[in-house]
Write a protein that binds this DNA or RNA. Structure first.
Length: 459
DNA sequence: TGTGCCGGGCT
DNA sequence: AGCCCGGCACA
């Protein structure tokens, strides 16, 4: 009766139709749906059948909840990366605390077995019955991913789509795991690549792969991890004048404030044409009150407006009321670099050029301070011109990418710096060796095989 | 001690 | 250029 459900099931429509999640329909019916190529991937396979993600359009997104076979049983996992080329998915198994790499076919979005409660203990019990339940499910999923990623605007209208995503069926076929592929790591921890202003325009601009329509799931899940919530951040400007600290919401306002209240007092003609006010305010960010998006357990900064935690009031540096070298801000700025990326408050170091940069201080020295959360926003092209428009060298890119682990040691690192310039910081990502194991060395990327810097699991 | 990877040698 | 490995540095 069912017309060759293979395609149908693969097609998003098919997925939508088969609402009673596959687990209800002969979950172990491995043969019929399995790809003709048969026993594809080794021991883990068991050709889990219907819920497979096929290669066609399933782009798993970081943070997406999936199921994989691990140690013979099905485990819940969270997608870390999805390599389209190799059709491999890096999955984090929170339960086991492991990262595993699975073929796309070995990953599915619905549990294959009717979840025996004991086995599914780690999963969110996904009710798959009605559309309403789907909402709950999606809420659960979203919350799950929220725990990893602060930014989740999950507009309700997407829920249905997501539902389909998670009910996707289809067999898969194995693609050889060849050389290094492209890993869709949308969340990109610290990835300096400026992610486009996501949320507002997200709905459409969000890069639908041209090939397969219906990549809605991408849209849906496409927020994972530390994707910056730029949208949810307001910018304000704080006066750094001693004992002032006034906060205004516009540059113009703050400048006017400084000019009139402070600089005006000093002397009229002392403020040169070079908009000296710039030196006396700093940009601060306010997270918009979006309780949902905050990962549970993450402490809230006591005050929404937060500049550098330590009072930014100039530490007695004042070279005579702000004439030539306003030096006050940056030291605090450097140290104020948020130690946890999740904290989205941050002081723009855009004024760090105020730092009394030692004559030959290498450009990198200062800039480490604040690029952790929103690389793009910290590097304002505008100011960059004055100070930090440093051409980003490869080494620095690395630094940016690896800044998170390094964070804890604030800045003051001239000795290390020299080292960084020469040697790559060790990445946190699982490398081929770790992922595949030595015994599968042939699956490593060539670089790993040659003991070079891994090209597949870039950090 | 295991791992990532730089530097350099060999083909 | 591709491949391999000694050895260093880091976790």
């Amino acid at each position: 009766m069912l017309p060759k459900s293979r395609l149908g099931k693969r097609s998003p429509l098919g997925a939508l139709v088969c609402t009673s999640c596959p687990s209800m329909e002969s979950p172990l019916e491995t043969g019929s749906h399995g790809d003709p190529e048969g026993g594809v991937g080794g021991p883990t396979m068991g050709s889990p059948g219907p819920q497979h993600l096929s290669r066609f359009n399933n782009k798993l997104l970081p943070g997406q909840k999936v199921y994989v076979l691990c140690g013979g049983r099905e485990c819940t996992g969270v997608v870390e990366q999805h390599n389209h080329v190799d059709n491999e998915v890096a999955v984090l198994l929170p339960v086991l605390g492991q990262h595993v790499l699975r073929k796309l076919e070995d990953v599915w979005t619905c549990p294959t077995v009717p979840p025996p409660p004991h086995q599914m203990s780690s999963c969110i019990d996904v009710p798959r019955r009605s559309a309403e339940s789907m909402d709950e499910m999606m809420a659960a999923l979203v919350l799950t991913s929220l725990s990893c990623s602060p930014l989740v605007p999950s507009p309700p209208q997407r829920d249905t789509v997501t539902g389909s995503a998670s009910m996707e069926c289809g067999g898969g076929e194995l693609s050889d795991s060849g050389s290094s592929g492209y890993w869709s790591c949308d969340h990109g921890y610290g990835s300096p690549a400026p992610s486009p202003p996501i949320t507002e325009t997200e709905g459409h601009s969000l890069a639908m792969p041209p090939d397969e329509g219906l990549d809605m799931e991408q849209v849906l899940f496409d927020e994972p991890a530390p994707r910056k919530r730029r949208n949810s951040v307001k910018v304000a400007y704080r006066c750094l004048w001693p004992n002032c600290g006034k906060i205004l919401k516009s540059v113009v306002g703050i400048k006017r404030h400084i000019r009139t209240l402070h600089l005006g007092q000093v002397s009229e003609h002392e403020r040169c044409s070079c908009s000296e006010e710039d030196f006396y305010y700093t940009e601060i960010h306010q997270r918009e009150p979006r309780p949902l998006t905050r990962p549970l357990g993450v402490p809230t900064p006591s005050t929404p407006w937060s500049a550098s935690p330590s009072s930014p009031s100039p530490t007695g540096v004042g070279p005579g009321a702000g004439g030539d070298s306003p030096t006050e801000v940056s030291p605090q700025l450097s140290q104020s670099a948020p130690s946890t990326p999740d904290f989205f408050w941050q002081v723009h170091s855009e004024h760090s050029y105020q730092v009394p940069v030692q004559v030959e201080a290498p450009p990198v020295s200062v800039s480490y301070s604040c690029h952790c959360t929103t690389p793009t926003s910290t590097l304002h092209p505008r100011q960059g011109a004055s100070f930090r428009v440093r051409s980003v060298s490869v080494g620095e890119q690395w630094l940016q990418q690896h800044s998170a682990p390094i964070r804890p040691h604030p800045v003051s690192t001239s000795p290390q710096r020299s080292h960084w310039s020469t040697r790559r910081i060790r990445g946190e990502a699982k490398k081929c060796r770790k992922v595949y194991g030595i015994e599968h060395r042939d699956q490593w990327c060539t670089a790993c095989r040659w003991k070079k810097a891994c090209q597949r699991f870039l950090d």
